[in-house]
């Protein structure tokens, strides 16, 4: 069980993701974001609960819906917003955008526009850490869509046969873009697939930050201790459209969306903190105000940041020493 300070830190981290995403959605409507923008609204508990156990030298590999992972891994809202604005101050210096957020200095090894490779790369980080005899871990965040991809099968098998220190965190939000997982998967469960690979696996409520926190704590402990990889299925839901600006109807009902909004991870956790007297309304309001200020500052920073110099466009294709 997390200590009081940690409990508030989880709340704050979820808010950083939520407010940043809501800001990005507004900025997208204003035309300040130039490409795709897939928000993590509704799924904040997962990145928050997992990354709470990670050190800066642990390696996270993420997806197209990766803003939350970057923020939870320690990339600042300023660097994330500036990257989506295409500015030189962004975490990828304007070369990446939403789907290529990199900050290896804090172990954020990239979000990706292709579904699947993060699973293999986190396996590879596990291989490095095993070979170098460190106690670091590699973590892959991926959606239910990736579970039907060959990378899932190959990556889990490789991590299992070599007992690599890797976490496979499946954020099952029920739809691959708009294709239901219930339609596209012969086995509608992910958390019971570990035994097929000789691996520990479990399913948790992905909208319950403490449930994710506890599952990840055990998985990270096992990985650091040389006990091998874990597959964690987190059942969750994205409450905004697949991408900002896209229609969001036809494949799911308004009733379903409302039902999941009622299970909002931040509201639930807020209520839990109050009910269990871990925090008072005043404390939580202070955190909310502080995070709002942080996100407003990030937006202003990004808007006032310089564009990348066009004559740098060919830099970094190859190592420059």
């Amino acid at each position: 069980m997390a200590q009081s300070e940690q409990l508030l830190s989880l709340y704050r981290q979820m808010l950083i993701i939520r407010y940043t995403e809501e800001q990005l959605a507004r900025s997208h409507q204003m035309g300040l974001i130039h490409g795709a923008c897939h928000t993590y609204v509704g799924e904040e508990a997962i990145a928050t609960g997992v990354c709470a156990h990670l050190r800066p030298d642990d390696a996270v590999f993420s997806t197209h819906r990766g803003h939350g992972h970057a923020l939870a891994k320690g990339v600042s809202p300023r660097e994330v917003v500036a990257e989506l604005f295409g500015r030189a101050t962004g975490c990828s210096q304007g070369r990446g955008g939403s789907m290529h957020l990199f900050k290896p200095e804090v172990g954020m090894m990239g979000t990706s526009g292709i579904v699947g490779p993060c699973i293999l790369q986190a396996t590879g980080a596990g291989y490095s850490f095993k070979l170098l005899k460190t106690d670091q871990v590699g973590v892959a965040f991926f959606g239910d869509g990736a579970v039907n991809n060959g990378a899932f099968h190959e990556g889990l098998n490789l991590a299992s046969i070599w007992k690599l220190p890797t976490l496979f965190v499946c954020e099952n939000n029920m739809y691959a873009t708009e294709v239901p997982f219930a339609y596209s998967a012969g086995n509608p469960h992910v958390g019971n697939r570990g035994p097929a690979y000789g691996m520990e696996s479990l399913t948790v409520d992905g909208n319950d930050v403490l449930a994710v926190y506890e599952a990840a704590e055990e998985a990270v402990r096992r990985a650091r201790g040389g006990e091998g990889p874990t597959l964690i299925e987190c059942r969750t839901y994205r409450t905004r459209a697949h991408a900002e600006g896209m229609r969001d109807g036809g494949y799911r009902t308004p009733e379903e969306v409302e039902e999941w909004k009622a299970r909002d991870p931040i509201t639930r956790y807020n209520e839990w903190l109050l009910k269990n007297e871990e925090a008072g309304t005043e404390t939580l309001a202070e955190i909310e105000a502080e995070v709002k200020e942080m996100v407003a500052d990030a937006e202003e920073f990004a808007r006032n940041s310089p564009w990348p110099e066009a004559d740098t466009v060919s830099e970094h294709v190859f190592n420059q020493g």
Binding site: L120, T123, S128
Partner: peptide, 10 residues
């Protein structure tokens, strides 16, 4: 893909 991740991590 695994070796890509390994090359990124030392």
């Amino acid at each position: 893909g695994m070796c890509a991740g390994a090359a990124m991590t030392g």
